[in-house]
Design a protein around this nucleic acid. Structure first.
Lengths: 145, 145
DNA sequence: ACACTGATTGTAAGGATTCTAATTTAATAA
DNA sequence: TTATTAAATTAGAATCCTTACAATCAGTGT
């Protein structure tokens, strides 16, 4: 699908002197096509058939590289494992407390909060994160029987 | 210090049929007097001298009880272990990316964001979380040499 | 063809958290 | 006060996620 974003990401990697190996390409492609903010293990399992010999370590290594270069963000919610999000455009997440589903939504960036926080705390603020928690539509109807 | 908040919390627990054991009391008291959002291990180590036989499992068990009852919130940042915050009044956190320090700050609650998220995602939103990341005053001056 | 650097692999190791089974204890009522 | 009982604690094993490590492999340039 998003060949353009993929090519752009590959160019960014190459520009940083990172080699494009088949495994690395596959992890990156999977992340770009995925709308579900997968965990490292989900990526590993998804690529298992294509790369039967790939190690989990490779997935983690590549995710770290992508994160350090700024291609993906690591999301740490309450659950045990990190999730990875390659949508770097400004957006926020709504998380279902019942089923764990994550839905993106847009909102004008909270610059006011950042500048107020700088004044109050003396921090030099670089970024922020925000999520709303609640019940998704499907779980709402399930709960209503 | 905050005997009032402690007594209030204990009443809440008793009202839910939770027994007040010495260990439980100590964990709760430590959390209430702590301004640093400690990890489970920090709590465990801090109470070690008073309860030499206490198990880590006890700390985790009690934190889970407190969380389920709504006395504390579990904070999951990028680092490996959860932090626990018993300040249930509305506030946000500023986190230093250099030294890990966490500073509370107040801001009018982002109700607008919650209602917009409900409209866009169809979620029934119960709450939200937000943090700003940056460099604290101390690390700023350290970096400047 | 050779050397060099980085990437991958498999496995071991680490840390945080949960589980389990046995023991102890707080709250309650007789 | 004592007996009762369900809940809480304990110690250690087990689990899960992630990282570290050493050996191997692959691509690039000389």
């Amino acid at each position: 699908m998003s060949d353009h974003r993929l090519q752009e990401a590959i160019d960014t990697l190459k520009g940083s002197g990172v080699r494009i190996t088949p495994q690395r390409h596959a992890v990156l492609e999977y992340l770009l096509n995925s709308m579900t903010h997968p965990t490292a293990d989900e990526i590993y399992k998804a690529l298992e058939s294509k790369f039967p010999n790939m190690s989990v370590a490779t997935v983690y290594n590549n995710l770290r590289v992508f994160r350090e270069i700024g291609l993906v963000r690591e999301l740490t919610y309450g659950d045990s494992s990190s999730r990875f999000d390659c949508n770097t455009s400004d957006h926020y997440h709504a998380i279902c407390e019942s089923c764990g589903k994550i839905v993106d939504f847009h909102y004008p960036s909270l610059n006011e909060v950042e500048s107020l926080a700088e004044q109050v705390t003396g921090f030099n603020v670089s970024h922020h994160r925000m999520e709303v928690y609640g019940t998704c539509t499907k779980c709402q109807s399930n709960n209503a029987h």
